[in-house]
Write a protein that binds this DNA or RNA. Structure first.
Lengths: 140, 140
DNA sequence: ATATAAATGCAACTATGTTGCACTCATTGT
DNA sequence: ACAATGAGTGCAACATAGTTGCATTTATAT
């Protein structure tokens, strides 16, 4: 079931030139299998028992995956990072949706972002972060 | 210097029907005096020594001020809440700017927010949260 | 002045994330 | 295949933001 995600994960890491370790594969596969952005905690729970992984290693691996553009992480109002696999590289410019009921977070691909924001004079634009809040289908 | 903010703060609290205490006045005055959104820590530092205030009391007072619409709090990617006085009630529908250099956060009033986001079917819109990141005039 | 509920202070706790250092193991070159 | 090497990992300890329970104080109404 998950094996195709494992293979994809391994390919992504190897193709990217990184060292291929069980931890990286397992974590990336878990994120690839997910339709939503999930937390450090949730990733931990989804990892197979055959792959015991230290909290710290998980944090560092996620950091590595982010830095190398294989996943991205999302800010939220509950002070917890959520992570999502980058299916297409450089696809980080999108909005996110967060359900105020169940705290589920998903990516919204269609983002009509205009880069020309009316900033005070002397300010320089870099990027935009946009979260739409509401209720998901289950919580409605 | 700050006395006018103290008076304004006291008026806002009293007019709102809340119990008028030195803590509430001092905290709200500190936020009114500020041109930017500041953290729990920064508020603590700005309070006069004549007003020693417990960390917990500060948290609870901020919570009360938020619930009563006198201030609002802002999510950020550094997992720290920032607070800003509401000059006009109900003025919370605006974007925020965060400087990636000095972490300064300000409110952007002119926000052409459209409420019609293309959400998946069955999802219900509630509100939008938007942060523009870049460099402020000092950090440019 | 007094009663009362709201606000405060203190101690202990939770949760997320970070740092330093020793040890392991994936990769590379022979 | 085998050894050398440095990237990756595990463990312990730490840092920070924020929360909870309960006793004490205080702003307000009577």
């Amino acid at each position: 079931m998950l094996s195709k995600f494992y293979r994809t994960a391994e390919d992504m890491i190897r193709h990217h030139g990184g060292r291929v370790t069980p931890g990286r594969i397992g974590i990336l596969a878990a994120l690839l299998a997910e339709q939503q952005a999930i937390t450090h905690r949730e990733i931990e729970q989804r990892l197979p028992q055959s792959l015991p992984l230290d909290r710290v290693t998980l944090y560092r691996t996620l950091e590595w995956l982010v830095e190398n553009g294989l996943i991205h992480k999302i800010t939220s109002d509950d002070r917890v990072w959520r992570y999502n696999a980058n299916l297409e590289p450089q696809s980080h410019q999108h909005a996110h949706f967060k359900c105020t009921g169940c705290a589920q977070v998903i990516c919204l691909d269609s983002l009509p972002i205009e880069q020309n924001w009316p900033l005070p004079s002397g300010y320089r634009f870099q990027e935009i972060e946009l979260t739409v809040k509401g209720l998901c289908a289950n919580c409605c």
